[in-house]
């Protein structure tokens, strides 16, 4: 059984915004990855000490998994069917049925169980999104947005990846454009861009917790300063953990700051807004500062630069300053 649905793979920086952008474009609503990310108001910063990843606090630079797909429904009125399954076999059959009708299907998976992923990126993270666009015998044809080209995945492995248990378990989640709904033909940028920017402003500047948004970045800066008491090995693991969260898995660089700057620039062009263009440049500065942090933090972990936690803390506070400035500008949107 072979499917040909005229699907075009495109590489993205981040899995979820990539899936959103590819799916919507496939259904005749061309949208770039940064635009999908920005319209979802997906940028954030959160330092969550009680959620541990491999014994380290969760540091998030974007909204929780699922937020982008959900935002596409809410803000763009795109109707999606979302299904989870208790029984893996039922879940696989449901996927087969949709593919047989020539639909492309988004899946939430655990990246550890996907055999085509390079070994060093395979860890137990349950919210990796990808598109299945067809099936050939036992192989599913996969468009994984973070890779350059399409790939294949055997049925057993895909089943395991869809139904891995644990935190954020996908429970076989699959989603596709509702065939009954009217197709959304265009995006009213003049309305949705300001909405999305304002929503993001609330997250970054007005969250009631000291660990979220710009305040969260300053909180991280304080935590880094307090590392003095920890043993060197622990300091290295902690600092490189921040770097991994910021750079490793599809952030487009600097913990999504460059994707967001790209969104602001695209928005500036669409709305002919010098303010958004200025905000985009400032966000790029913030991203550059985050990259500088990664560079120095890693050099210090490797012993190629004397350990100076106060200096790292200063860099983080500078990231916070830049971002505060961006959002102050964007208050006028």
């Amino acid at each position: 059984m072979s499917e040909s649905v005229g699907f075009a793979h495109r590489q993205s920086a981040h899995c979820e915004s990539g899936v959103a952008s590819s799916m919507l474009s496939h259904y005749g609503l061309p949208i770039s990855e940064p635009m999908a990310f920005g319209l979802a108001a997906a940028l954030t910063f959160a330092y969550i000490p009680f959620v541990k990843m491999a014994g380290m606090p969760l540091i998030a630079y974007r909204m929780p998994p699922g937020a982008i797909i959900k935002a596409m429904q809410k803000r763009l009125n795109v109707r999606m069917v979302r299904q989870r399954f208790r029984d893996p076999e039922t879940g696989m059959r449901a996927l087969d049925e949709q593919l047989a009708q020539g639909r492309i299907v988004g899946l939430q998976t655990c990246i550890y169980w996907l055999p085509y992923v390079p070994d060093s990126f395979r860890f137990h993270f349950n919210a990796h999104n990808l598109i299945v666009y067809g099936r050939e015998g036992d192989d599913y044809l996969i468009s994984d947005p973070i890779f350059e080209t399409t790939t294949r995945c055997a049925r057993d492995a895909l089943l395991k990846a869809r139904f891995a248990k644990g935190d954020l378990a996908a429970k076989g989640l699959m989603y596709y454009a509702d065939p009954q709904a009217n197709r959304v033909a265009h995006i009213d940028y003049a309305t949705v861009i300001p909405q999305a920017v304002r929503a993001n402003l609330r997250i970054m500047r007005k969250a009631p917790l000291p660990v979220i948004g710009v305040k969260g970045i300053r909180y991280l800066a304080r935590r880094v300063m307090q590392l003095h008491r920890a043993p060197q090995a622990q300091i290295s693991l902690y600092l490189t953990h921040i770097v991994r969260m910021q750079e490793e898995i599809g952030t487009g660089g600097a913990g999504f700051r460059f994707i967001y700057a790209s969104f602001l620039q695209e928005a500036a062009n669409l709305l002919d807004s010098p303010l958004l263009a200025e905000a985009s440049r400032k966000m790029t500065d913030a991203g550059d500062e985050w990259r500088r942090f990664a560079l120095h933090a890693t050099k210090m972990s490797r012993g190629r630069q004397p350990l100076d936690l106060d200096a790292l803390s200063v860099v983080l506070n500078r990231c916070a300053d830049y971002e505060a400035h961006v959002w102050d500008l964007l208050k006028a949107v």
Partner: peptide, 8 residues
């Protein structure tokens, strides 16, 4: 920089 963090 990133590769070092991953490998560590």
């Amino acid at each position: 920089v990133e590769a070092y963090a991953t490998l560590l």
